[in-house]
C-alpha cells in the first residue's frame, strides 16, 4: 500500500490540526442537531461549539452527516 502525495499532505494537515482532547463521534452526534441549527442561523459555531466544528473537519463520516442534515434544515425549516 503506497501513500499518494496528495493523501500524505491531507494526513499532515490533519496532524497539524490535531488536538490533545477531541470530541468523539458519539459526542458530536449528541450535539449535531443543535450545531446544525446554529449553522443554519448563521451563528459563529467555530466560537460557540469549537470542539464539534473541529471534529467535523477531521471526521469524514460526521461531516457527511452534518452536510446532509444542513441540507434538510435549510430546505424544510427556512425559519430556523
Amino acid at each position: 500500500m503506497q501513500i499518494p502525495i496528495d493523501k500524505l499532505k491531507t494526513m499532515v494537515r490533519g496532524i497539524a490540526r490535531t488536538q490533545e482532547i477531541e470530541y468523539s463521534c458519539d459526542d458530536v452526534y449528541q450535539l449535531l442537531d443543535e450545531f446544525t441549527e446554529a449553522v443554519a442561523q448563521g451563528k459563529d459555531v467555530a466560537k460557540l461549539m469549537p470542539l464539534v466544528q473541529q471534529h467535523i473537519e477531521m471526521c469524514p463520516d460526521c461531516r457527511e452527516e452534518f452536510e446532509a442534515l444542513l441540507r434538510v434544515v435549510r430546505a424544510t425549516h427556512p425559519g430556523v
Binding site: 449535531l32 446544525t36 441549527e37 430556523v80
Partner: peptide, 15 residues
C-alpha cells in the same frame, strides 16, 4: 430540547 424536535428526528434519519 436543545434543537427543534423535528431536527433531532431528521438527524436520526440521516444517520
Amino acid at each position: 430540547g436543545r434543537s427543534q424536535l423535528t431536527t433531532w428526528v431528521q438527524k436520526i434519519a440521516v444517520r
